[in-house]
Design a protein around this nucleic acid. Sequence first.
DNA 1: CGACGATTTGAAATCAGTCAAGAGCAGTGG
DNA 2: CCACTGCTCTTGACTGATTTCAAATCGTCG
Lengths: 247, 247
Amino acid sequence: MPFSTILMPMVTKLQLWTRLEDEDRDAVLALPHKLRSLRAHEYIVRDGDEPRHSCLILGGFAIRHKLTGSGGRQIMSIHMKGDVVDLQNSLLRSADHNVQTLTNVEAAFIPIDVIEKLAADRPTVGKAMWNETLVDGAIFREWTLNVGRRDARTRTAHLLCEFALRLEVVGLGERCHYELPMTQEQLADALGLTSVHVNRTLKSLAADGLIERTNRSVRIPDWKKLAEIADFDSRYLHLDQRLPAAT
Amino acid sequence: MPFSTILMPMVTKLQLWTRLEDEDRDAVLALPHKLRSLRAHEYIVRDGDEPRHSCLILGGFAIRHKLTGSGGRQIMSIHMKGDVVDLQNSLLRSADHNVQTLTNVEAAFIPIDVIEKLAADRPTVGKAMWNETLVDGAIFREWTLNVGRRDARTRTAHLLCEFALRLEVVGLGERCHYELPMTQEQLADALGLTSVHVNRTLKSLAADGLIERTNRSVRIPDWKKLAEIADFDSRYLHLDQRLPAAT
DNA sequence: CGACGATTTGAAATCAGTCAAGAGCAGTGG
DNA sequence: CCACTGCTCTTGACTGATTTCAAATCGTCG
């Protein structure tokens, strides 16, 4: 293998949606990049920036969020190992949202023009990256539905289900037992609720035996039951047959 | 000009974000397609379908929406002349949301494999289409923020501002005077509110002189004032310098 | 031990939803 | 030309989910 495999998480992620030839894979692995360690709560991109690099997460968690004029924060998505987290901002030239670390993060920064050239030279890779941004879009849509039309209980349960599957896919947890990477206040900002209400809602889910939690760890005793009250249907994650019976 | 110009609205839209060479433009215009007239409220794609065609809107309005298990509906976006409205669904193979006409619609249906081939053969066009889906994503994010973190009044005003600019860009209205293509119930589903509350909110905006309305027509006497109380910043539409001082 | 952030809890306030009914308006058919 | 039908819009009174405000407890890390 002629190249470093540091960027392998990106290849793995791309291969979730598109089969890559060896040369395509090698071309991705050969992308020039700078490695950086970021501490928790650092901004990667700020709304209004004109980023020249895209940021591939190798370890840790990051979020994308926007702020209202009155200071309200809405978290739009969570990102983890293998996600290229500001492809959207950098391809559109001008960032329309913030990207911020949640935990300490190991990341590779790749110049955006190199990514654009790769997409043009290797249509298969371009298609795979396009697909990744489309799946991001699908997740945004589900979040909009979640925030707009589900009550606090359903909404919270739904988020817990999404985490379960997404962590499972990248091997950072099991579907029925994982570590929540967020505080209740951050959950609130992802759910469009207040942290107080998130707290009460989590307690109510626990009281009904739908989840068990100690600290940040979540255990789901009966996946099907939780998925049902969460109104959760994993199709929007577009994981296809990659997961056993996800509901 | 060797080709029909029926697909010109698509070229115009793509050129909002990317400059196209003549050959690229001609390649788009030469796309094989079937024209269809759709009546109001017809489904173009249903959640769960596996569409083989993408649908370019030539006239009229369409929406994308998702339903909760309990029947709640969230409208995710509105589409008009020049929008390729189910690129997302068709490229991902399996539709994760519904696409439905709002009014009578004239549309061109283009086979998805032809679109994929075009994107691969002509990277510039591929990039332009990718960009279009990225801007869609940017609009989803803003809607999530809108629904999750803004109160009913701000939220409603924000939507009115977005419509104003988007209709202006495609030449279907003026920024300060346009025809709303939706009923109040549909507005409610876009805003995550009830139609009763939308009604009261519109009345309250009108009472404060921020909008004037007769039937579906909206007039905005003072754009800056409305944009301000709407917490509206048009950057997320990524229209760049294409609009005079949009705020 | 002390400090700081995160979680938990209670009580009061409020924004938006629900239910229900009437008014306006356009299209249809007699 | 008019009554009828079916939407959409409007309005009022009441309800309720979620927020707000405030304070106590917990946990972890230096």
